[in-house]
């Protein structure tokens, strides 16, 4: 009696899982297949599912439309800002987790608020500042501005991580006369590596995906890939294949990183609110 119900249950559940999976993955399938279509095929109505694929769109966007350099810019900016955020953020996280001092709560609140600030608030003043300082259209301008969201991510996740390290270890080291810096570097940081890794991956994803700062601050030399994707939207002609090829090139690296960090992604996105 129980067995058939269970099997039927399992079937129902399987179908449900399949639907959930399709719901998530189908747009990516459509993006990739559209990127392999010529403009004529992409504009077939109704859309076609079987066709002879071509890599022409990729060849064109990478080598003619300068999406290649834009991807390199994105990489430079995302890696640099992540490294900087980790370098600045881990000591701060350590201090928040281990030291007692006045104003700690306010400081922590200030860090956390940055997660809520919309880039559109900062973008225009930063444009004016970049104009005065000559940082417009440089990688540095983007690397610095991306700290507004990468640094808080690193601080939050790593603060959590440092707190979970038992105090006995550093107490023993302190008795032996080690400085706080040494304890941080040699004992706690190695133990906090999982948190550092997760926050790095998240910083990378967020920086890679950013559009508004890039769009306003880096019109040409430092133009990143998402800003590049937007430039195909000329009202005269909408090259679906090229747009989707560019989109695929932008999305694939972040999806790989997201899958690598999938176990910790939720914790990262909720800023440690959910374990």
């Amino acid at each position: 009696m129980a067995a058939p119900t269970n099997r039927r249950h399992a079937w129902g559940e399987g179908v449900l899982l399949l639907l959930i999976g399709l719901f998530c993955v189908f747009p990516f399938y459509w993006m990739v297949t559209t990127s392999l279509k010529t403009q004529v095929v992409a504009l077939e109505s109704p859309p076609v599912w079987w066709f002879t694929p071509t890599l022409a769109n990729y060849r064109e966007v990478l080598f003619v439309d300068k999406v290649g350099p834009a991807l390199i810019n994105s990489l430079i900016v995302a890696v640099s800002t992540t490294a900087l955020a980790v370098g600045l953020g881990t000591p701060a996280a350590y201090a928040l987790a281990r030291f007692e001092f006045r104003g700690k709560r306010d400081l922590w609140f200030w860090f956390i608020t940055n997660r809520f600030v919309s880039p559109v608030v900062l973008a225009f003043p930063v444009f004016l500042i970049a104009r005065e300082t000559g940082l417009r259209d440089t990688h540095i301008a983007l690397i610095l501005m991306y700290l507004t969201f990468t640094l808080p991510i690193v601080i939050w996740i790593c603060t959590d991580q440092f707190r979970s390290i038992p105090h006995e270890l550093d107490e023993a080291a302190m008795l032996e006369g080690a400085s706080q810096w040494r304890i941080f570097r040699s004992i706690c940081l190695p133990l906090a590596m999982p948190g550092v890794a997760v926050s790095s991956i998240l910083s990378f994803i967020f920086s890679w995906n950013e559009l508004l700062f890039a769009y306003i601050l880096a019109p040409k030399a430092a133009k990143t890939a998402p800003a590049m994707a937007v430039t195909f939207m000329e009202g005269y002609d909408v090259p679906y294949g090229k747009i989707m090829a560019t989109s695929t090139l932008i999305v694939v690296p972040v999806l790989i990183f997201a899958l690598l960090a999938s176990k910790h992604l939720v914790r990262g996105l909720t800023m440690g609110a959910v374990k």
Binding site: A130, P219, V230, T231, M233, G235
Partner: peptide, 16 residues
Amino acid sequence: VPYENALGEQVRDFVA
């Protein structure tokens, strides 16, 4: 650039 961005990009470039 797309037409819709051309004015903005030029204004920002000239201003800066």
